[in-house]
Simulated scan of single mutants.
Amino acid sequence: MNATALPAAEDSRELRDARADRRFRRLVTAAGLFVLVSLAAAALSMLWGGRAAFEKFGIGFLWRDAWDPVQEDFGALVPIYGTVITSLLALLIAVPVSFGIAMFLTEIAPRWLRGPIGAAIELLAGIPSIIYGMWGLFVLVPFLSTHVYPWVNDNLGELPLVGALFSGPPLGLGMGTAGLVLAIMIIPFISSVMREVFLTVPTRLKESAYALGSTTTEVVWDVVLPYTRSAVIGGIFLGLGRALGETMAVTFVLGNAHRLTPSLLEPGNSIAATIANEFAEAYSPMYLSSLIALGFVLFIVTFVVLAIARLMLRQLAKREGY
């Protein structure tokens, strides 16, 4: 009797485990599909909200530089230009600094110093963006307008080819200031990712390189970077995605002038700043539709950037044999 009951109990337990496994698979599948549904719903809702602007201006909405609420004449070129320029400038500043921070923490800094600096980076990552914007407006803008931008305009504004980038009135507000604030914001994210991936490099690889007479610089360039290249690129694009969508910090220091200018010293505009500043003032359906259309454009720009990152990482993985 006991011999008969034992297999029955085992069969019942296997059935319960199978049912529990099926429920778990359905649950995690639903969680994964929820991400896709949310992404599609956000994109379609913005596309539907901006349909009036796209119907009136067509695809030309993307390269029109007009923005006249009175005449209901709108275009996305100036906000797109400001978004891309400030984000690329932030990346240009943040990547070398983040790389230096990560290298210092993993290869050079003594153990007693790594903890405090690592904690400081995490604290910087947790500061709300509006705090960065207020700091930029009340501290950084006066400093730059008084001590930095006048020198930049006088000494770099007359250079051939690149002089137009550095010429203009030293207002302090502008795309250069916005790029600098964005760089300070994304440095904690990029440096944290770099530090974590640098720590994954096997110690034996680095010790072998040092044993062969390599310097710290040679170990970094010949061992650490090739081993972590894919993850480093992913962290950089993560910071770029954060910079593209930043709103409040940029709104404080960008100047919010809807004009197309090559100068980094002059005020400009971005997609997020335009939406934040003017959404409450959108008094006509076309005005509101144009702002929602800008949100859809920002969604597409961010999606394209992240898609390019995924393609680059996939190509690197194929090249490395994974």
Rank of each mutant, 00 (worst) to 15 (best):
A9L: 14
S12P: 00
D21L: 14
F24T: 04
F24A: 09
V28I: 15
A31D: 09
V37N: 10
A43I: 07
M46V: 01
G49R: 13
R51A: 09
A52W: 07
A53E: 04
W63L: 09
V70S: 14
V84Q: 06
I85R: 07
A94P: 09
V95H: 02
I108C: 02
I108H: 06
G115P: 09
A120E: 02
W135F: 15
L137G: 02
V141Y: 08
W151R: 14
L159R: 06
L159Q: 06
F166V: 00
G168T: 12
L173W: 12
T177P: 06
A178H: 05
A183L: 08
F189R: 06
I190G: 11
L199E: 15
R204M: 13
Y210I: 04
T215K: 11
V219H: 02
Y227L: 04
F237E: 03
L238Y: 07
L240F: 15
G241H: 05
G245I: 08
V250K: 12
V253Q: 00
N256I: 13
I271T: 05
A273G: 08
T274S: 15
I275L: 07
A293D: 08
L306A: 12
A309P: 01
R314Y: 05
L316C: 11
A317F: 00
Y322C: 06
Y322P: 00
